[in-house]
Nucleic acid binder design. Structure first.
Lengths: 339, 339
DNA sequence: ATTGGCACTCACGGCCTCGGAGTGCCAACT
DNA sequence: AGTTGGCACTCCGAGGCCGTGAGTGCCAAT
């Protein structure tokens, strides 16, 4: 009973604060939400919530504001994702379906996400699909060590050292090299996994272990985010919070300017398939202490391709952001599959 | 004599205002710059400059602030571009030389430019170089009208209608189509002009007019900015101007979020080879009324490839921005040529 | 456990004052 | 004519001073 109401109070505080961006007091709370109790009772609950670290007051005799911990609890326990309206879904569909190519899809996606959430949106976007193999080389370093050199048509060069269980004969190496070259060179990264699917089978059984290792290494190199890109959109939404934003938006913009940071934000996704929310200092990027990041993953076929998400102030509409990220990720996945 | 001093005064005002972002008065002016006259004289000059529309006062009994027109005059007449220090040049060289591929060059360029100017930098970057022709089709619409359909390997489709001076025989059309396909399909855009250089010559003299038209149309389509991209960097610098920035930075960010706007900014470059400066409302983008744009062009070989530039408040360091844009454009050109 | 009452706190907005920087004008000087 | 010093005037902005009101914590009563 008591605990239930406390949660309700927390939810109400978050809701109000998100809506108004102003500390919320006990009286306003009972008026706006129909909790069937008096302000005094709420005050007690608030004191308890403050003790537990979920809310805080900017100064004595001001209303309460949720802490990062408060948002965390709110997100974990209270949010029921509100599905998008059917009108929204239709709009998304139309907007996305008119995309021309991969670049266009990404640009549209980021626009869409920024629009839906009214936040800064980011879409990670493996250029895998556009790179292709120019050449591949296998060099023997010692009897059990190989170096694989992969030359991408963008001019980039990737090197890997491969440790083999058993010594490799020069002949096998030459054979493997030749067949590998003829199989993958000129092929776009995206098709390499397919092309190599049955590659090992054509070798003698005793060599398949080694071939498998080499193939696996190559696949790893190709699948890895070699040449990733992140598109950013809706940065203007940051400016909306004027002075209300804790501190200036400058550090945030600086952070978002760094590809590396964006990658990290988008990379640190929970293994679970759903949407991840990182609140305030849960982001280990210092400049983003006052922001929350909502990320999701999208895929093509049945392999995960990359992530997308939004960045906004901690006092954001989590329910909306989560459902938008989820929905957009789904649509992108669908569009990619259709292509 | 008089006019000379007035220009000196204007320059001093711009210098001071750029440095301090505060309206500059007559007394401060004579103190900081050693104009050999008294404040009263300066006041007279200021009054004249104000009459002519070069400066203005935010309110009575405040110092003067340059108008857009004032900046224009300043840029046109007074700026002597200060060359970069040799240390700067070396740093640029090192930074740029370690670029891996085209993408990397662009990312580095935009970073560099933002760093040097402490402004928002943008680099236009024709993906021409990366697109290639998948297929080309010629369809007869009437005896003198053709439709050319160009399919790019990114999946994009370009259509052009070609009006011919004389009727075209089916046979010529079929021949042209076949030879065009075999000549350009699979070729990267960048090589198409070269590949088609002597294409028309292999046709019968009486057909060369038509073939020339078709080739010209194709070249146009290929050379045109079909699939251009713009990278943006240093947006954080906008936030530096806090409230000092006329109005909020939101509209500016919004504008910069739009590829289309960026294209326009970078596209409207004076035909002259040098650096173009557009000040305040000289940009016909409304949101950028309070900003100036400095753009330059870079090239690969001897054909102009694309533009780069910076966007900042009208009270920016024009001399620095101009020289930085110029220098970076030169370096990019050099790097591209070396590749 | 909940509630009404009460005294206390403190940010915020309005109001006023005052200093100072800057101006325009005018008369005097070169 | 151009330059200069003097002078009265304007007006922004910082600082100080309330009064108000929302909000709190505590306590006694239900």
């Amino acid at each position: 009973m008591v605990d239930d109401r406390r949660l309700a109070v927390l939810r109400a505080i978050v809701d109000d604060y998100v809506a108004t961006h102003e500390p919320v007091g006990s009286k306003a709370l009972v008026e706006r939400h129909n909790l069937g109790v008096s302000p005094a009772t709420i005050r007690n609950d608030m004191a308890a919530l403050e003790d537990e670290g979920f809310i805080t007051q900017p100064h004595t005799s001001a209303g309460r504001v949720p802490t990062d911990l408060g948002y965390r609890l709110f997100v974990d326990r209270l949010t029921q994702v509100k599905p998008l309206s059917s009108a929204e879904r239709r709009a998304i569909q139309v907007f996305m379906e008119s995309a021309v190519d991969l670049d266009d899809i990404m640009v549209r996606t980021v626009k869409l996400l920024a629009q839906l959430t009214q936040q800064v949106a980011m879409v990670q976007y493996p250029s895998l699909a556009r790179s292709s193999v120019r050449h591949i080389e296998l060099i023997s370093l010692s009897s059990t060590r190989l170096m694989m050199v992969l030359i991408v048509d963008t001019g980039r060069v990737e090197q890997r050292v491969i440790e083999c269980a058993a010594p490799i004969s020069d002949q096998l190496l030459a054979d493997l090299r030749a067949r590998l070259i003829s199989t993958v060179s000129g092929k776009p990264f995206s098709s390499v996994p397919e092309v190599l699917a049955r590659f090992a089978e054509s070798f003698a059984p005793e060599d398949q272990g080694l071939v498998g290792t080499v193939v696996a290494t190559l696949l790893e190199a190709v699948t890895e985010r070699i040449d990733e890109r992140v598109v950013l959109g809706g940065t203007a939404h940051l400016a909306r919070y004027g002075e209300a934003f804790p501190l200036s938006i400058q550090p945030v913009l600086e952070a978002l300017d760094e590809q590396v940071v964006l990658m990290r934000l988008l990379g640190e996704v929970s293994s679970a398939g759903g949407v991840t929310v990182r609140i305030g200092h849960e982001n280990d990027v210092e400049a983003l202490e006052a922001t929350s990041v909502v990320t999701g993953r999208y895929s093509r076929g049945d392999q995960t391709v990359a992530s997308l998400g939004v960045v906004g102030p901690t006092h954001m509409d989590y329910a909306g952001a989560i459902s938008a990220v989820q929905a957009v990720a789904q649509y992108v996945t669908r569009i990619l599959d259709e292509q």
